[in-house]
Amino acid sequence: MISFFIKRLLLLIPVFLAVSLVIFMIVHLVPGDPIDNLVQINSSPEQKAALAAKYGLDKPLYQQYAIWLGNALTGDLGDAIILRRPVSDLIAQNLPHSLTLGALALLFSTVVGIAAGALAAIYKDSWIDRVTMALILLGSTVPGFWLGLLLIMLFAVQLGWFPVSGARSWDALVLPVLTIGLGGVALVARVTRVAMMETARKDFVMMLHAKGVPPWRIELRHVLRHALLPVVTILSLRIGWILGGAVTVEFVFARPGLGSLLITSLNQRDYPVVQGALLMLAVAVMLGTLLGDIVQAAMDPRVRERIE
């Protein structure tokens, strides 16, 4: 079990290298020279060259990549060109905001999604099922940013229940979490409902009825437990999607965070920051997938068997 996860972790190394190379290259392939942002319009080519040398931009690309990666692995992501601070400081400052938002959105999607899906499956073909299904359909077709704007208009502007933007108090989290989470709720509810209805048809469930186990206990302790397996799979596959949601939502709600940092730096062509932020997001996605594997192995003895 432990050795499997060490193996899994080692397997992530080539993935990490490939992703880091792509992140490094993307920044170099977009048009626009960051040096132009740094210097006065009338500065001489010599001044530009001196600045380029200072940021290592005069070296061949492969050398720049090796240096960047080597430094990144020791926690040094370079200095921001515009903000003139270590990128690692900027990330350390913004990451907690994104983590809080992402974790709450994930929690919200999981808890509400599973509850809605389970209710729909247990009371299938009743009005509860139909209402849940309608909401699921709505939740999975409405784009997140649009939903965010709608929520702002309704709850922040019209009703004034929650702040329009910022991150000064806990209630500023409510609308962003709803915006990211509702799509997740729809997804989790749909997967839970289908998986529970499929499990309910299995022989072992009939056997549980034959053993005289009360139906609610069969639904919660056995059927729902099985339905959680595909939910974990889908969530670990969708970690990137949730983080991506956090990026745009931070921007829409003008919240500090990795997403806002990324978008601001992108506009300013402050590419050490862009690279650093993207790398952090990539690492988060990889760790999320690994976490999904661990949870799955903890829940399903057959998965543990396959691993060993």
Binding site: D203, F204, L208, H222, L229, D300, P301, R302
Partner: peptide, 10 residues
């Protein structure tokens, strides 16, 4: 069918 009569994750 004993193969399918037991809950596989318990």
């Amino acid at each position: 069918n004993p193969m399918t009569s037991l809950d596989p994750i318990i």
